Simulated scan of single mutants.
Amino acid sequence: MYTKKAVLAVAAALAALLSAVAAPAAAAAPAAAAAPSGTVLGPCGPGRLCLWAKPDFKGRAQTHELATTDIDSCVALPPGTSAQSLANRTGRPVTTYQSAECAEAGEFETYPGRGTWVPQTPYEVRAFKLWER
């Protein structure tokens, strides 16, 4: 089992790596600009976590605002739904889970909140947690 401190340390390391490689391009790009790979970034406003049902920001999008989402709490997506691409513009790290209960027995991944667009998650996202910085 991973502690919150360990998850945040990994998130900080990922943030540093992504900011050096991809985050500046994504953060500076307009909401619907083309990513370097030719993928069109999905629209996602500041302070939001946006989740799309299909890869490459396609399908029905779900939007969660920082102002209305509990920090450090597991937020399950509606039953029968999942996400396969996301944009994190909350300014906080977000961990996505394969499990709808945020169980760490399944797959999970933490993404920094500095304008991170993920066109293809490594698993179907069924829940997430926003973390305190």
Rank of each mutant, 00 (worst) to 15 (best):
L17W: 07
F57T: 02
P24C: 08
S73L: 10
R114S: 14
L41M: 14
E104D: 11
A83M: 10
Q98F: 04
V21F: 11
A32Y: 05
S19F: 12
R60C: 00
S82M: 03
G80H: 05
C74L: 04
Y123F: 15
L18T: 03
D72C: 03
L18G: 03
E107L: 07
P46N: 09
A22D: 09
C102K: 12
I71N: 07
D70C: 00
L86V: 03
R126M: 02
A15V: 00
C44E: 10
A20F: 14
R48D: 14
A23V: 14
P93W: 06
T39K: 11
T96Y: 12
G91P: 06
A22Y: 10
S99F: 05
A15Q: 14
L51T: 02
A127H: 11
K129I: 15
V10H: 04
S99W: 02
A32H: 07
R114E: 13
V75W: 13
A127Y: 12
F128G: 05
A15E: 15
A61L: 09
L51E: 09
R60V: 13
E109D: 03
P93K: 11
L14W: 07
E107K: 06
V40F: 09
W117I: 01
L49Q: 07
P122G: 09
G115H: 07
K129R: 15
G80A: 04
A33E: 06
R89Y: 15
W117D: 04
A16S: 14
R126N: 13
S19M: 05
L66S: 09
P79L: 07
P119L: 01
A100W: 08
P36W: 07
A12K: 14
W131Y: 14
C74N: 06
G45A: 15
P30L: 01
T110L: 02
T39C: 00
A29L: 12
G115A: 02
E107R: 10
Q120Y: 12
T110F: 02
K58A: 13
A16C: 02
A16V: 02
L86F: 04
G106Y: 07
I71W: 05
Q98A: 13
S82F: 11
P93A: 07
V118Q: 11
A35H: 04
S85E: 06
L49T: 12
K58L: 11
D70Y: 01
V75P: 01
A23Y: 06
P112S: 10
G106L: 15
P119Q: 11
